[in-house]
Computed example of a mutant assay.
Amino acid sequence: MSQTLQAAYAAKRKARRFAVQGIYEWQMSHNPVHAIEARTRAENHMHKVDLNYYHELLTQVVAEHNALDALLVPVLDRELAALDGVELATLRLGAYELKQHLEIPYRVVLDEAIELAKYFGGADSHKYINGVLDRLAESLREAEKKQAK
């Protein structure tokens, strides 16, 4: 992989990290998304972050959270309200990427969500995130999953 591709990949990974933090903050505080984004940009060194992708993830996951939740509910083994806040933020972000970013292979979406859960979540939350998003990929990425088998 070229250094340019590695840098782009790393910038998207950092965008996801900041986005999941912002989504979590919004879930807990219901602060306006633009205020969360402005504070995050002011308080962090974000020169190596894909800022456009960060902005998209944060604003669109929050804007579409009801539709994303509707996608998640059938593949959950518990009530949405019973999810840990970090798990919910990570699942919403993963569901958004599965639905809206078909150019990103579903396995990459799952791997990124697993890494976020390992970094921010509880001890075994990454396993739960993997299972839920894998089940969601059955419907959102059916053809892609069949090809991967």
Results as ranks from 00 to 15, higher is better:
residue 5 L to Y: 06
residue 6 Q to Y: 06
residue 6 Q to I: 08
residue 6 Q to N: 10
residue 6 Q to K: 10
residue 10 A to K: 05
residue 11 A to Q: 04
residue 12 K to M: 12
residue 13 R to Y: 06
residue 15 A to I: 06
residue 20 V to D: 02
residue 22 G to H: 05
residue 22 G to V: 04
residue 23 I to D: 03
residue 25 E to R: 14
residue 29 S to C: 01
residue 29 S to Y: 08
residue 32 P to D: 12
residue 32 P to I: 03
residue 32 P to C: 02
residue 36 I to G: 07
residue 37 E to C: 12
residue 38 A to E: 13
residue 39 R to I: 11
residue 40 T to Y: 08
residue 41 R to N: 08
residue 41 R to M: 11
residue 41 R to W: 07
residue 42 A to S: 10
residue 45 H to Y: 11
residue 47 H to L: 13
residue 48 K to C: 01
residue 54 Y to D: 02
residue 56 E to Y: 12
residue 57 L to C: 12
residue 57 L to I: 10
residue 58 L to G: 02
residue 59 T to I: 00
residue 60 Q to H: 08
residue 61 V to E: 02
residue 64 E to P: 01
residue 64 E to F: 05
residue 65 H to I: 00
residue 66 N to V: 06
residue 69 D to E: 09
residue 71 L to Q: 12
residue 71 L to K: 08
residue 71 L to F: 05
residue 74 P to E: 11
residue 76 L to Q: 09
residue 78 R to L: 10
residue 80 L to Q: 12
residue 83 L to F: 07
residue 84 D to M: 00
residue 86 V to W: 13
residue 90 T to A: 06
residue 93 L to H: 00
residue 93 L to E: 07
residue 93 L to C: 09
residue 94 G to S: 02
residue 95 A to D: 03
residue 98 L to F: 08
residue 99 K to S: 14
residue 102 L to A: 10
residue 102 L to I: 08
residue 104 I to C: 00
residue 105 P to Y: 08
residue 105 P to Q: 05
residue 105 P to D: 10
residue 112 E to T: 07
residue 113 A to T: 05
residue 116 L to P: 01
residue 116 L to R: 02
residue 117 A to Y: 08
residue 117 A to G: 09
residue 118 K to Q: 15
residue 118 K to G: 05
residue 119 Y to G: 01
residue 121 G to V: 00
residue 122 G to C: 05
residue 123 A to I: 04
residue 127 K to N: 14
residue 129 I to K: 01
residue 131 G to R: 11
residue 133 L to A: 05
residue 134 D to T: 14
residue 137 A to V: 14
residue 140 L to H: 07
residue 143 A to G: 03
residue 144 E to Q: 14
residue 144 E to P: 01
residue 144 E to H: 04
residue 146 K to L: 14
residue 146 K to N: 09
residue 148 A to D: 15
residue 149 K to L: 15
residue 149 K to D: 15
